[in-house]
Every structure is written in structure tokens, then in C-alpha cells.
Design a protein around this nucleic acid. Sequence first.
DNA 1: ATAAAAACCTTAGAAAAACTAAGGTTTTTA
DNA 2: TAAAAACCTTAGTTTTTCTAAGGTTTTTAT
Lengths: 222, 222
Amino acid sequence: MEHIRILAVDDHEMIMFGYKYILEDADFCDFKITVDTANSFELGIKKIEESTISYKYDIILLDIQLSITEEGTPHTGEDIGVFARKTVPDSKVVFMSSFSDNYRINNILTTVDPDGYMVKSEINKKTLYDMVHTILKDPPYYSSKALQAIRRKMSSNISIDENDKKIIYHLSIGTKTKDLTNHISLSLAGIENRKRHLKVIFGIEKQNDQALINEAKIRGFI
Amino acid sequence: MEHIRILAVDDHEMIMFGYKYILEDADFCDFKITVDTANSFELGIKKIEESTISYKYDIILLDIQLSITEEGTPHTGEDIGVFARKTVPDSKVVFMSSFSDNYRINNILTTVDPDGYMVKSEINKKTLYDMVHTILKDPPYYSSKALQAIRRKMSSNISIDENDKKIIYHLSIGTKTKDLTNHISLSLAGIENRKRHLKVIFGIEKQNDQALINEAKIRGFI
DNA sequence: ATAAAAACCTTAGAAAAACTAAGGTTTTTA
DNA sequence: TAAAAACCTTAGTTTTTCTAAGGTTTTTAT
């Protein structure tokens, strides 16, 4: 009988143990599952490193937000995902995250290209089993809210460059237009021109910045 | 008990009747299904039009390739999809197509934004039931190969403009570089410059046109 | 209600990017 | 092996984007 090894990384122990017991208890006909757990970025990295010289994990389940355990640059599950992609390319990476906004989902799919993404509110016994089964047999696996974010992105024909993304992002956190020159290497007039153009392509000419932010959110740009 | 109405449009009768009998025979606990069929573009359009003044279809299953039955501009299932989107926006549109190439899948998802896409080689009793269930409860539904095409597109950060797409497309059907000026409003030098730039961003400098075509195919650009 | 600040808009000019033309070299095809 | 096609480089042109500045309109703060 095939033996499937899974690593679950989440800073909430109860969540990890939930995955562990549900998956280890599962009555998969043709394989047996063991689940290792790690409750911090550092421990997650360590277990992945150790797996390179012993049995590699078949699946690595990653939360995105991990609490900071030590001083230094804060790290996320995304950083673990990137690390795993390089270090153990045959291990399947699946994000299990409470983030369900279009931007976060689409951004992770672009930067890490994980084998799966599940929004936490959609994780239950059945979807967990479905995920493991699909990931092993025929990846990728995306839960429903992830699919909805993907669909929104796929159906949008608009693409914007890094400067435009920065403009929208900073506006969305409250920065005034005149202060955007501190964050973006363009003149105020250049920024104003781009704002005007973004409003045209989003179909909201003559509307305010909040409308711009809303349209960008809908499309997954922030 | 809820009554679910489905329209299946395919120019192969056996396929339509396959869907019809499998779905009408299904033992869905909480609803009953009837499946109408149409074996041509014209008949499909007619049935959708009729549905606007009677019961609208809950789900419309569309093949993409439909044989030409009459003189005139050939139409595809995609055209029916666009028509349905406008005419009966509450009806869910699902493509059931033999096309499994990245370009075709991604292109349909952008231009029609269907509620689902299934590659024909992945359609069986179980996946058909899963599709109907998901489409009714929590769309979208994409079959495995469609998800793989989507994943490939999502993870690629490259975007190219319409001129570049035309260059790659025409090269892929055998047009020589010097003849591209007949199809694209640029000088030969302009086209050569763009080819050189495309090869840089696809990471295939100094390689031939076939390499460029291959990289574009992988990324779903053609 | 009013003044100040911010945003928007327009015009003119500058800078950067993309394009064109042409010709030489290299590679591919017949 | 010759011809055709593709690639590369240089110089100049055209197009696009940016900047600067100032005026008008809208929003915010008092």
C-alpha cells in the first residue's frame, strides 16, 4: 500500500491537528497517509530541508499568515511556498488560507504557481479528501472561492503595468494623489494622466478614486 | 421537487443523446432534469430565443465546433455562448469541447466568460453529475485539463499586445517573416524587432521560430 | 459659509520608446 | 552552391509618455 506524506504548516495548532486527524483517519482505499505538522515559518523550512535527505513530502499544506516567532524579517507561507518550489520541486504545494480576496488569490497563483489553493471557510472533511485525491492524481485543485477569483481574472482583458498597480495600491491605503510622487518614480502630472487613463479603461470616467479602487478590487488588481 | 432544464447543442446527435439519457436517468435527490437537444447553430439559437418567452434553461451545454448546415457565415458554439450571455443572462453556459489546447480554452474563458468548460475526453457519468451539481450550486466548474490551462495562464506574468499575437499566430501557420507585413501594420524591421524582443521575454534568444511558437503555445497565446 | 487644499484639466515642450529604412552578415532553403 | 530569408546594426523619424506650469473645479477643514 502506497504511503503518502503530508506536511501541514499553520501557526494555529488546532487547525493543523484538525487536518492531521481527518486525513490520517481517512479510509483511502489505496494509500495510507501520515501528516507532519509545523507551527512556524522556521520549523516549516526546517522540515522541508530535512525531507530533502529522507522521504520527501508528497503534499505541503501552507497557511499564508504565520505569526512572527523571532526577530527579523517577517516571513509568510508564501515564502515557504517559494522555497519549497525550489528545494523540493516534486512536492505538491497547496495553500490553505483565510484570504479570499481576488488580489491575494491571483497574486499567489502568479508568484508561487501552487498545485492548489483552498479558502479556509471551504475546508471540510469532504473537500479535504477531494483535494488530496485530486492533487495526487490530477492537479491542480482550487476551492470554489478560488475558482471564482480565477474566473474573474480570466474574463478580464485588462492588463496594467507596475506603475499603475502601485498607484491604485497606494490610493487604496489612503495616500493622497499629490503624495504618490513619494512612492512612484513619476511626476504628479504623469500620475494624474495615468489615473485618468485607468478610469477610462475601467469605464468610470469622471468618477472618484473610491470608484477606481472598487473596480481594481473587482478585477483582482488589489 | 425542483425541475432543472438543460439545452445541449452539439452537431453529433449521439453525444447529445448521451448527455440527455445520462442526466435524465440520474437519481438527483432534490431535482428532476429534462434535456432539450439541438444539432445545429440555428436550432440552438431558436431554442434559446423560445426559452425567453417560456421557461428559461438553467444550463446550456455547448460544443464549440458545429457543422455548417446552411450557406452563410459559419457560426460556432462560441457565437451561441455570446448570444446566450446577452439574451438569457441567468442561464448558465458550459462549453463541452474537444479543444484542450491552452489557447482555445483561455480565449473562450476571456471572450465568453462561461460558467464552465469541460474537455470532452474528461466527460463521463460522474463528471457530468459533478458539473451539473456545481454549476447549479456554486459555479464555476472546469474539468481537469481546463484547470491545467488556466493554471498555466495564471502563473505566467507575461502579457503581449495584439501585434505580437498576430506575429506569433501567422508564424505558427507557416507565414514567412518577410510576408508578415501583409498581415500586420508594421515594417519588416519593426516585426524583426518585436520577434527579437519576444524571444528575450520567453527566454529563448538565438533560437528559431519554432521555439518561439512552442513557448507561445505553452503559455496559451496561440 | 468660507478659505485652503487637493484634484482635475489643458497646453506646450521634452524625453523615451517604438518604428522605419537601408544595407551588410549569417543562416536556411531550394 | 546559389538564392532566399532571417538576423543584426546604425541612423533618423514618428509616436507615445512624461514633465512643467498654470487655471478651474471639487473636496476638505475650520
